[in-house]
Design a protein around this nucleic acid. Structure first.
Length: 407
RNA sequence: CGGGCUGUGGCGCAGUUGGUAGCGUGCCGCGUUUGGGACGCGGAGGCCGUGAGUUCGAGUCUCACCAGCCCGACCA
């Protein structure tokens, strides 16, 4: 990709803002605010979000999931049937078009359950594991912290349907393991913590939390086992348990819920077992905030010059900046592109300083600079954004070196 | 939903006791520059958040509303 053909622009001046992720992502040109808690995702953000989604999708497929895209618009009656509309906490976060009696999807337990009534009759039809990537709408009373708590956001949600509690429990634990793997692949150190089920279930749920000073959750964790408890369930803990735990601030990046038969019973989703008896379906739901993950990564990976997202989620893996009038930059750009490296050529008619400052702000993991200085010895400079390490390499070795750094 | 602060060219801001709006940056043109947002000259760009009032006259004063940010309550 050539920067001259890529829709993006960094901003020189920004209003002071407490949220680091919103400030950096907006200044670097990833996102643009539309309203409180509502952001447009610009090309840089889209590339990062797609990479995050790809990692999540691979793991959901490995878990046995089938990808779907359900509708975001849902009839209000859906929630009335499950009884959830009676819950004031639920009702107040749902966007509603009262004329059409339609709601803007906040979650999908009910629609999924309704859909399964058509396809599940026998124990032979179970389990069913469905997931989707979708925009969710939640009327947060107070949107804040940039991408960490929005009113419109990207989310992966997965729903599992099982013949009994035991098989559900087994899947639930597999899902928890998969979640930890997803966060690890994204470069995040996640803790599995017990929390309340909120408006989803009366049971405990499991949250996946990433320690971060600016997070809005408070959790009690054991650093050895990478487990802990949300502060909201603290009063249920024994004193002896508490002593071993450290209290930290964190961002919730995922949450999984054992739902039991709450929704399947509400919609009468049943199946016939091997002996011909009608049985309730056991359910679970499993969410990962995709756009919140981008906010979390921005919150954690940055310095005074800008973003430094890990290469597996950065919009591009490398940038080429040519400060000479030769065609060397073009050559390196096309060589890297041919080898499958996601590289951007900064071919703008801008000053060297502008290109270097923008490179740090946007946070390309690898920066290649060809200048009169490096050209003297037939070399090019490689700078790693993460560590700040600078090396000079021969032109013919660039591709190999970049590939090695990215592997 | 309570409390505080803020709304003025694309973005960031200033605007005195009321007199019809300015700076920085970005943008366009020309020239000089070229390893950390460089400089000179010349330009374009504003219903001063919205609506009512007070006044000869409102960016400025009054009231209401709307929006954004922050704190709290709430929250997969």
């Amino acid at each position: 990709m050539r920067l001259s053909n890529f829709y993006t622009k960094t901003r020189r001046s920004m209003a002071a803002q407490d949220s680091k992720n919103a400030y950096l992502l907006e200044k670097a040109g990833y996102i643009s605010q539309v309203a409180a808690g509502v952001y447009a995702f610009l090309p840089l953000a889209v590339r990062s979000l797609q990479k995050i989604e790809t990692i999540v999708r691979e793991e959901m497929n490995a878990l046995g999931g089938s990808e779907v895209i359900f509708s975001a618009l849902q009839p209000k009656s859906t929630w009335e049937k499950s009884g959830r509309w009676e819950d004031k906490n639920f009702r107040q976060i749902v966007y509603l078009d009262p004329e059409a009696d339609m709601t803007f999807g906040a979650t999908h337990e009910e629609p999924m359950t309704i859909a399964l009534k058509q396809s599940v009759q026998s124990y032979r039809d179970l389990p069913v594991i469905l997931f989707q990537f979708q925009t969710k709408f939640r009327k947060e009373l107070r949107a804040k912290s940039g991408l960490l708590r929005g009113r419109e956001f990207r989310m992966k949600d997965l729903y599992s349907f099982h013949p009994d509690e035991e098989s559900h429990h087994k899947f639930y634990e597999d899902a928890a393991k998969t979640y930890l793997k997803v966060f690890e692949r994204l470069g995040l150190d996640a803790y599995r913590v017990k929390a309340s089920g909120g408006v989803f279930t009366d049971e405990f749920s499991d949250e996946f939390q990433v320690i971060c000073e600016t997070g809005e959750d408070e959790i009690l964790v054991n650093h050895k086992t990478k487990t802990g408890f949300n502060k909201e369930v603290e009063d249920k803990l024994k004193e002896t348990d508490k002593k071993k735990l450290e209290r930290v601030k964190a961002i919730e990046v995922g949450n999984i819920f054992p739902l039991g038969t709450k929704y399947s019973d509400a919609f009468d989703l049943k199946y016939l077992d091997a002996s011909g008896d009608r049985q309730s379906v056991w359910m679970g739901s499993y969410g990962i905030g995709i756009s919140r993950l981008l906010g979390t990564l921005a919150e954690l990976f940055n310095d005074e010059h800008g973003l430094k997202l890990p290469s597996q989620v950065a919009p591009f893996e490398a940038v080429v900046i040519n400060l000479t009038s030769s065609k060397t930059g073009e050559k390196i750009y096309s060589d890297l592109t041919e080898q499958g490296v996601e590289v951007l050529l900064d071919d703008r008619d801008e000053m060297a300083g502008t290109k270097l400052v923008d490179a740090d702000l946007i946070g390309y993991p690898i920066r290649l600079v060809y200048s009169a200085k490096t050209a003297q010895d037939g070399k090019i400079e490689i700078k790693e954004r993460g560590s700040g390490k600078v090396t000079l390499v021969n032109l013919e070795d660039v591709v190999g070196r970049v590939q090695k750094l990215l592997s």
